[in-house]
Design a binder for these strands. Sequence first.
DNA 1: GCCGTTTTCGGCCCGACTGTTTTCAGTCG
Length: 569
Amino acid sequence: MTNEQIAGMFEQLADLLEIQGANPFRIRAYRSAARTIKSTADSFAALVEQSADLTQFSGIGKDLANQVAEVVTSGTHPKLDELRQEVPSGVVDMLRIPGVGPKKVAVFFKTLNLTTLDELKAAATAGKLSELKGFGKKIEQSILDNIDQAAEAGQRVSISVARPSAEVIVDDLLKLDEVTQASVAGSCRRRKETCGDLDVLVTSSDHGVPMDALADHPLVESVLQRGETKQRVRLSSGIELDLRVVPDESFGAALQYFTGSKEHNVVVRQRAKDRGLKVNEYGVFRDDEQIAGATEEDVYAAVDLPWIPPELRENRGEIQAAESDSLPELLTIEQIKGDLHMHTTASDGAGSILEMAEAAKARGLKYIAITDHSKRVSMANGLDADRLRSHWDDVRQANEQLKGIELLCGVECDILEDATMDLDDDVLSEADWVVAVLHYGLRQPRDQIMKRLMCAVTNPHVNIIGHPTGRLVGRRDGADVHMTELLKAAADNGVMMEINAHPKRLDLDEINAAAARDLGIPIVISTDSHSVNGFDVLEYGVDQARRAGLGKGDVANTRTWAQFRKLLK
DNA sequence: GCCGTTTTCGGCCCGACTGTTTTCAGTCG
């Protein structure tokens, strides 16, 4: 049972309790525990086996600790099963309709006995919803307008899709004479892997101007809401965007507020309260007097904290670090000197060795490793020993020709389903750099997955585990990796860990990357480029590292190759 | 349901927008 699964059960429980009208703070407790479990690197299943004290984790008390133990040992949750009996899953699906929350869902279920989205749609079409007390024609129509999207609603989009749109809109709003400041906020500013929607903030002498400009923007499909200070639109890409217009003296407070995360802000506001202050999106107030708010720095200073980088604002220790003046100096993309994972036409890449090298050099990289696939990946034209040796000859020859960049002979070697390496040790021993990866058999049981990873970690020639879990963001869970065990073995055997920068992978995630760093494992951020444009994704890997709190010293490919190779076993 | 050393009870962040109301509830972020 993975942390994700345990957290998922608590989240379902919270949804069901909400529809039943349970105590909102009890519901919050379940959500908060789910969040803690999801954002912990250690496996709760393993912790239960070791009889560890789970109440050491924030938001998990005696009762929830028992529930976790029960879930892990029995695989089921009696209270959840009971609630599922009482509330059909189709009722929970109704929560995905924008504008429909637990209270309305409860009315649909309890008074009209509607149990699926289809039944709800039929009832709305027949005009039955508007006959309910507290409901009218507008709500009914809004449900009809949105119900077909309910299946897609709530789905998050990749940061690589969301962020470019938001930045174009911010740039265009900044061109308006009436707009003085503008910024992306929300999860996009925190550089999360995915965004549920976009938040954009502007200050303007005239509220109407930026709102009109947004409504007419080529990326915008329709306006969903418009008030005095807030406008919600849908982009043609399907992403929804909130625009907020605030006065200049409130820009910092609004930016802080709308950047979130919610959990981070709760702590900031509690600190304000403890100091007799109130923080809202308009500023920091003592009684009715505004004492801060023009800049984010002022807001944090008002609660006795230094400015905290948005990537860290998740209430995962950054407040304590800020308090003790030990916030990390986060990695920047300019500090990356080499890229150690990429493909060429020798396997499934689109660029030649020289094309990839020139493109890397043009981006300021000083060294790259050519790491084409090994033979098991036949679909990608993976290389056997003979082809690989001949390919390395070409790499060495290219290295002779090129000035200003160093080329390394590498390979992305599969860890086979039977826990052996796809290439023999004598071949691997000739490589400058060996990336070991799982591609096939990701659904194998944990024991076999771990056997395979241990085979790679203990191999004397393997330098790094690439995309360690094999997950695809929002599409496929990774293999059932016992991460704590893997990281410990990697640390013991001098094996590094990759943050694969491709926005579909971002693997390790920020939780596990931080856990690796804590064990002193050098992290390498790699693009896994399959073409000369593939290097573009580096920024997403850097963002992931920043969210993990990594600095220059934690990331090995900030070093020159001469320094880097001293880290190799 | 969690949390805490001023508390083991009584708190738990705050405001905008919408739609349905004649002053507020629900939803959202």
